[in-house]
Amino acid sequence: MNVLEGTYSVCRLPPSDRVPSWALELHEGFMSITRTPDELSIVCGQDAVPPDVTVEDGWKAMVVPGPIPFSETGVLARLATPLAAAGISIFAISTYDTDYILVKEGDLERALETLRSTGRRLIASGSPYEPVIGFSRAVREGDRVLVSGTGPVMPDGGCPESTYEQALRAWEIVAKALNEAGATVDDVVRTRTYLTPDADPDGAQKAHGEVFGEVRPASTMLVVHSLLDPRWTVEVEAEAQTRR
C-alpha cells in the first residue's frame, strides 16, 4: 500500500445540489465525487472544504498499486477483513484502475502494520538452492511464521564440528529468518530437531535450551538415517505465532 500525501475529508451534500465550484476546481491530487438518490458525497483534501459543509475530517488515504484487472477477485476483502479484525474503520473507494482505503489519521500506522502482517511473505537467505528447489527460508502468512529445515551452514560454506555448535549455528540462522519476517525466538511455539545416528543428543538439547529455555515451545527431536550434507549431525525447523 502507498500512502497519499495530505489529509482528506469526506463531505455530504444534499442529493439535488450541483457539484460545488470548490470541488470542480480541484484538478490535482486525489478527489472523488459520488451522487446517489440520497446524497452527493465528495472526498477531497481537507483544506479545500468550506466551513458550512457537513463533513468528517481527518482521513489518510492508502492506494493499492494498480492497475488491478477486473477479473481479480477479493482484493478489497483482503484489505478490509484484517483491518476490521483490528478494530480499524475504513472508507473505501474503487476506481477503474485500483482501490483506495481511507482510515482515520490516528489509525494510519496501526493500519499499515496490520496490512504488513497480512498475506504471504517469502523470506530468502540467499541460498542458491532456494530457486532451484523452489522453497523459502521462511514464510510468513498473517501472524504465523514457518521456518524451513535449517542446517548448520557457516557464511563461508563450512560446518562446525560438534553437534552442539552445529545446533547453535542452525538456530542462529533460524533467528535471523524470524527477525526478517517480523518475529523473534520469543514468538516460537514449535520446534523440530533432526539428529543423525552419529549426533550428540545432549549437545543438541543444550543448544535448544540456551535458545528457548525461557520460551518453552512444543518441541520434537527425531533420529533420522542421514541429512543432506554428510557433515551435518543436526538440522532444525521452527514455527512462530507473532503477537503483533
Rank of each mutant, 00 (worst) to 15 (best):
M1G: 15
K176H: 05
E210V: 01
P152E: 00
R190F: 14
E161I: 00
T242A: 06
T150E: 01
L79N: 05
R78G: 12
F70L: 10
A23C: 05
D97H: 15
A175F: 07
L222Y: 15
A84F: 07
R169C: 00
A80M: 15
Q205H: 13
V43C: 12
A177V: 00
V64P: 04
L112D: 03
S127N: 06
V132A: 15
G87K: 13
I88H: 05
A177R: 00
P50H: 13
W22P: 07
A238F: 03
R192C: 14
P197N: 02
T163S: 02
L222C: 09
D97K: 13
E39W: 05
V174P: 01
D47R: 13
P69W: 07
V145G: 09
I173T: 08
R190N: 09
L115E: 10
G134S: 11
G45H: 08
E28V: 11
V145A: 02
L79D: 02
T36V: 05
D187I: 12
E72V: 12
G6S: 07
G58Q: 11
G213C: 04
P20M: 02
P50N: 05
H208N: 14
T98G: 11
T34I: 09
M1Q: 06
A86L: 04
Q205L: 13
V75L: 08
A218N: 09
R110S: 09
Q241D: 06
R78K: 12
L228W: 04
G87Q: 09
V132D: 12
D143S: 14
M154N: 01
M221I: 07
A238N: 01
F70R: 15
S127V: 01
V189N: 10
H208F: 15
S41K: 14
T220K: 13
T73P: 11
L76P: 02
S125N: 05
A170M: 02
R192Q: 07
P197D: 00
L122F: 06
V64Q: 08
T7M: 11
Y194F: 07
E72L: 15
E161P: 01
G126F: 03
V3F: 09
T220F: 12
T193A: 01
I33S: 10
C159E: 02
L83C: 03
M62C: 06
T196P: 10
P20D: 09
S16Q: 13
P82D: 03
A84H: 13
N179K: 11
V55R: 15
A61I: 06
F91N: 13
A204F: 01
I133K: 10
V49K: 07
S226P: 05
D38C: 06
P152Q: 00
K104I: 01
